[in-house]
Design a protein around this nucleic acid. Structure first.
Lengths: 214, 214
DNA sequence: CTCATGTGTTACTTGCGGTAACGGTAGCCT
DNA sequence: AGGCTACCGTTACCGCAAGTAACACATGAG
């Protein structure tokens, strides 16, 4: 029993793992994050203990599931962030990429961010918070790296970049979440509004008549 | 059986409700949001069904609990937002108020925002997501109202204000969450960094040597 | 043939949210 | 007084989901 066998088995196990993840994906997207391990196992054509052998516990499964989508989204964002263009254009492209992603697959988004609420009858859900925030944190850190690498912020640039990275990601996330729920305007308008905000239009705007401004 | 009796009973019920909420508060702050209804009932010196008679279900209890803290925080924020001062000063005061609140009572904050994870051994938590986002949404809406009321944004000001309200709140929240976890700097520095971001310093900064900027 | 190993199962335990059914106890009515 | 109606409280239970133990079948190696 050595490498060759091990690799064979590992390949097989990896394929199985992928199949299980795809089944889990289908169920979670259909039934919401409250989906039970039994349901996921049934969809995969097997039974619970196998899931536990592969993923340890439900958290492990959900983490693996979240990682897939998270990686895909981060890849798209990185591409937008790396395109050759002016800074504002890049910012807009990145915002648009994120918003387009959550608009195109709101089910996935809701799973990643609001892992409760989901299916028709959603009762006692699951812990969560443990999968959504990794995504936001990772996005924040990556954006911080990009900012620090490319923007001249003078002294203390590292900390400033990290604050901004997390702050901008949070802005994008919260605005996107609200927008996705209410759909008050077209995506492009939202992108413009957010870019304007980042471009200091709040500071530049005048007060309205009737008192000191905000 | 009419008003007088009813009011007496209602007063008594309200007092009871307050006591129960305080007990729940203690337990949740001690054991984290995974606290069981049994534990809360025990802390209050009673048993489960009474909790259910008062709050319907666990969601109702947590919602009531969250509302208390949410209202308190919103009150403080409104005060900071209404102080007579220049716009930038107000923004800084508001940011500082929020950050001071979460710094002073991280347990409460974690309950409101990340209702999973909590006590030492926290496993199967609870659904959640249903209590944190109301807070963010309410803050976003209130800020939007203030912006629209006081800042001259030209046409489409209503939508712009709402986007910005939610966006700024999200920025504050995400940056605060990250900062609370890592404590990389003093609160005042964070406030400055965020205010600088809102004041367009990202747009104003130059590119770093080595390529087009972010 | 046997034995180790990986894959799968059934059947169970534990602990939670939530509820039904029952017991006291205060006040009001006649 | 005696009984009736609400209300506060209890015990004991249901359903369900996470997670686990113990067992069963295959298959390839010696």
């Amino acid at each position: 029993m050595d490498t060759t066998q091990r690799t064979d088995q590992q390949r097989s196990a990896d394929r199985r793992r992928r199949e299980l993840l795809e089944a889990a994906d289908r169920v979670v997207l259909r039934d919401g994050p409250g989906a039970s391990m039994n349901a996921i196992a049934a969809e995969a054509g097997i039974t619970k203990p196998i899931l536990y052998r592969h993923f340890g516990d439900k958290g492990g499964l959900y983490a693996a599931l979240a990682k897939r989508h998270t990686d895909a989204l981060l890849g798209a964002l990185r591409a937008a962030l790396d395109a050759p263009a002016e800074r504002r254009e890049r910012v807009e492209a990145t915002l648009d990429t994120y918003l387009a992603a959550i608009e195109a697959r709101p089910q996935v988004y809701r799973f990643l961010m609001h892992p409760s609420e989901g299916g028709p009858q959603n009762e006692q859900g699951f812990d969560m918070g443990a999968y959504s925030f990794p995504l936001l944190r990772r996005m924040g850190e990556e954006l911080a790296d990009v900012i620090e690498e490319r923007v001249d912020l003078g002294p203390n640039s590292q900390q400033l970049a990290r604050v901004w990275g997390h702050g901008i990601v949070g802005m994008m996330h919260a605005a996107g979440d609200w927008w996705l729920g209410e759909r008050p305007c077209a995506r492009a308008e939202l992108v413009q509004a957010l870019a304007d905000l980042l471009w200091g239009r709040l500071a530049a705007a005048g007060d309205k008549a009737g008192g000191p401004g905000f």
